[in-house]
Computed example of a mutant assay.
Amino acid sequence: METVAYTEKIIEIDGFRIAIKIWGDQSGTPVLAIHGWLDNANSFDKLIPLLSNDICIVAIDLAGHGWSDHRTQDTSYYLWDYAVDALKVIEKLGWKKCIILAHSMGTGVASIIAGAMPNKVTKLIFIDGLGAPFVVEEENIVTEFRKSVQQLKMARKTKLYGFSDPDVGYFKTKEEAVHDRMDNVIGKISYDASLCLVERSLIKVSQGYRWRFDPRIVLSECYRMTEQQAQLFIKNIQCETLIVLGKQGLFADGMYTSRIKQFKNATVHQIDGGHHLHLEEAYRPISTYINQFLKI
Rank of each mutant, 00 (worst) to 15 (best):
L277G: 08
H275W: 07
A282L: 08
S258K: 14
K261P: 11
D272N: 02
F251D: 01
G254P: 14
L279Y: 03
D253C: 12
K261N: 12
Q270M: 09
K264Q: 08
A252N: 13
H275I: 07
G274E: 06
D272Q: 04
Y256R: 14
I271S: 06
H276Y: 01
H275C: 13
F251K: 06
A252P: 12
H278N: 09
V268W: 00
G274I: 08
G254S: 10
Q262C: 13
A282C: 03
D253F: 09
A252D: 13
F251I: 15
I260P: 00
K261E: 04
H278K: 01
H278C: 04
Q270R: 05
Q270F: 06
K264H: 10
L277C: 04
F263S: 00
F251H: 12
Y256G: 08
S258A: 15
R259I: 10
Y283G: 01
S258E: 15
A266I: 12
K264S: 15
S258T: 13
K261M: 12
H276R: 02
H275N: 05
D253S: 15
E280N: 04
A282T: 04
A266E: 10
Y283A: 05
H276I: 04
K264C: 12
D253W: 14
T267Q: 13
N265K: 07
K264A: 09
L277A: 06
L279Q: 03
